[in-house]
């Protein structure tokens, strides 16, 4: 072997050993009493970029569940096509309980009507939700809109630019629901993600943004945005910000628009695996870390799974699916997939 090869190998070995010794501390022992205990690394495919809401929720849950399940959980970001390709590859993986997805209810529930993955139904997934974050109507602080009345007046008298994270994203659905319910119109300006949409409103390029409370919380705290109402039937409390009034105070029959974030695992996995995961999720979703994440990002910590989660998915599919179809964004009718009108 030439000297070069030797040096190369030695360098690689030394760095590998150094790295292992530093990180091996993170490995934990297996939980003894579980019926199904994972024997190798679990992978969570997050079909969105690193740092987004789905990603953060998945990471916090993963770090909690690693300890409970006694295995390591790897997170892979597979962004693109509104999360549908990543979600599909999680679905196409072997259904042995070792591949999960980290996504949001409204996204998974609309892949069919949007014709992204018409072959995979939201009913094929068992959802585990840990974070609920409602959409908040927020405006640039320099905007003449200061409260609900001036908001409605602005939408009635001029064309208001509303930023969103793209077609079918939270902010878009919220805007559609808001405008559709009140018979108003607006100028939809899509961005490449929730964060750019919020930043554009802070910068004054757009006037209104209706993205998730998670994405606007810090801008609200810093007075870079002004909250008008939360699209929910309860007021929203974000630490450091005045209580945001519920939209139903102003328009009684306005639907709630909010996203549940969490894990998605195909229903076809072995039942004992599902049981173990369910128990682990139950503990993880009530952990301090999840609670803290929710508190900081202006959202609500929840622990929804099983048939309760199926119900949330059904509601999301029916509400978002029909909204998107009626506004001409979605090509496939929800009827095609037996999704009833809300």
């Amino acid at each position: 072997m030439s000297r070069g090869v030797r040096v190369f190998l030695v360098v690689m070995l030394v760095s590998a050993v150094a790295v292992v010794s530093l990180f091996a501390a993170g490995a934990r022992e297996a939980a003894p009493d579980a019926e199904w205990s994972p024997s190798r690394t679990i992978t969570i495919i997050v079909p969105w970029g690193a740092g987004g809401a789905s990603d953060q929720t998945a990471r916090v849950l993963a770090s909690e569940m690693e300890g409970i399940l006694g295995t390591r959980i790897a997170i892979v970001n597979q962004p693109g096509a509104s999360g549908s390709t990543g979600q599909k590859s999680a679905f196409d993986a072997r259904k042995d309980g070792y591949t999960w997805a980290g996504n949001a209810d409204a996204s998974v529930a609309t892949y069919q009507v949007l014709d992204y993955t018409p072959e995979i139904s939201h009913r094929d997934w068992q959802a585990y939700f840990a974070i609920f974050t409602p959409c908040v109507i927020a405006v640039n602080p320099d905007s003449p809109i200061t409260d609900w009345d001036s908001l409605i007046e602005a939408f009635e008298t001029r064309s208001v630019d509303v930023a969103s994270a793209g077609i079918g994203a939270g902010g878009h659905i919220a805007a559609e629901a808001f405008a559709g319910n009140l018979g108003l119109s607006y100028n939809h300006i899509p961005y490449g993600g929730g964060n750019p949409a919020v930043v554009a409103t802070v910068a004054g390029e757009t006037e209104v943004v209706m993205q998730l409370s998670m994405e606007v919380a810090d801008m609200l705290r810093a007075d870079q945005l002004r909250a008008i109402a939360v699209l929910d039937n309860r007021p929203l409390q974000i630490s450091g910000v005045d209580e945001i009034p519920a939209v139903t105070d102003f328009a009684a029959d306005m639907p709630s628009v909010g996203f549940h974030f969490g894990l998605f695992i195909p229903k076809d996995i072995p039942p004992e695996a599902a049981q173990t995961i369910s128990a682990a999720f139950e503990t993880a979703s009530q952990s301090e870390a999840v609670r803290r994440l929710a508190e900081e990002r202006g959202s609500v910590a929840v622990s929804v799974q099983g048939s309760e989660a199926d119900q949330v998915m059904e509601q999301a599919a029916s509400m978002f699916g029909w909204l998107l179809y009626d506004s001409g964004v979605a090509d496939n009718s929800p009827e095609q997939f037996d999704i009833p009108r809300p």
Partner: peptide, 13 residues
């Protein structure tokens, strides 16, 4: 995102 996860809140505040 890592900063947020570690309870450090950058931004205007």
């Amino acid at each position: 995102a890592a900063l947020f996860l570690h309870n450090i809140r950058p931004g205007p505040m």
